[in-house]
Amino acid sequence: THWKHGGIVGVRGYGAGVIGRYSDIPDTEAPDVHTLRVAQPAGWFYNTKYLRRLCDIWEKHGSGLTNFHGSTGDIILMEARTNELQPCFDELIEAGYDLGGSGGDMRTPSCCAGPALCEWSCIDTLDLYHELSMEFQDEIHRPRYPYKFKIKISGCPNDCVAAIARSDLAVVGTWRGPFNVYPNLIQDYEKTGTDLKDVCRKCPTAAISY
């Protein structure tokens, strides 16, 4: 098969979100099996109702095969025939879903769960994800760049979404201001037999001492 991000097949009003795929052997049983990208919610938070409705729509219009998630974070719906693309898109929009980015455009941003689940998060990744998604709706849906552009947001330097390695614009939260030190807790740890000097020795940057 050969494939292309946008331009050869799509849905009305959008230039992105559908990856066209055609067979080089036109007389095969399935000469066209396209892929749709559905934009993911911030932090990939789903409930069963959301997923069940999505799968029902996809089984009606496509193969039922999914990929959670693509490298950008979108939900990937694999293998839809050309005549099912627009009906599937219409039903997805009606149910409250939207297509993500593909091709030479701003790809759907992605972020870690941030303060919703993680004590290490230094920034509100979910809020920033929402703001960026709303600001760049036109750039996500209508390709205008010579190449793709990805934004990924990690709440701390653990970088759980691999923002540094897998995006063009990486946002990584870091601690601002002096570290909090709790002497009473340190003494409590010492009473339990914890070797605090050993803990300090294991700090790779020698940032702490005891």
Rank of each mutant, 00 (worst) to 15 (best):
V172R: 05
L169C: 15
Y14R: 09
Q86D: 14
D195S: 09
L169R: 11
R144Q: 12
R52P: 03
T66M: 14
I25R: 01
E29M: 03
Y22S: 02
T28V: 10
C203I: 02
C112A: 05
K197F: 03
E131K: 14
I164Q: 07
I8D: 00
H34I: 09
T72F: 03
P109C: 10
P109D: 14
L36E: 11
T35A: 08
P146N: 13
Q40K: 01
G10C: 01
Y210I: 15
G17N: 04
D27E: 08
Y147D: 14
I140W: 06
V171P: 10
Y14V: 02
P31Y: 01
C160P: 11
P183R: 08
W44A: 05
R81P: 01
H141C: 13
D56Y: 00
L169W: 11
T174Y: 04
I93D: 13
K49I: 07
Y22F: 01
C88A: 15
L77N: 08
S23V: 13
C112H: 10
G7K: 01
D159C: 08
I186L: 09
I57D: 13
R176C: 10
K60Q: 12
G104A: 14
R144G: 15
H130K: 15
Q86L: 02
W3Q: 05
W44L: 01
V38Q: 00
E190C: 01
D168A: 08
E119P: 08
D127C: 07
I140V: 15
G73I: 03
L126P: 13
E135H: 13
Y129V: 11
G62N: 07
L92K: 07
K150H: 08
G10M: 04
V33Q: 05
S121T: 10
F68N: 11
T205A: 04
K191C: 04
W120F: 08
G7T: 12
K4G: 06
C160Q: 08
L169E: 12
C203G: 07
V33C: 04
E190Q: 03
I75M: 07
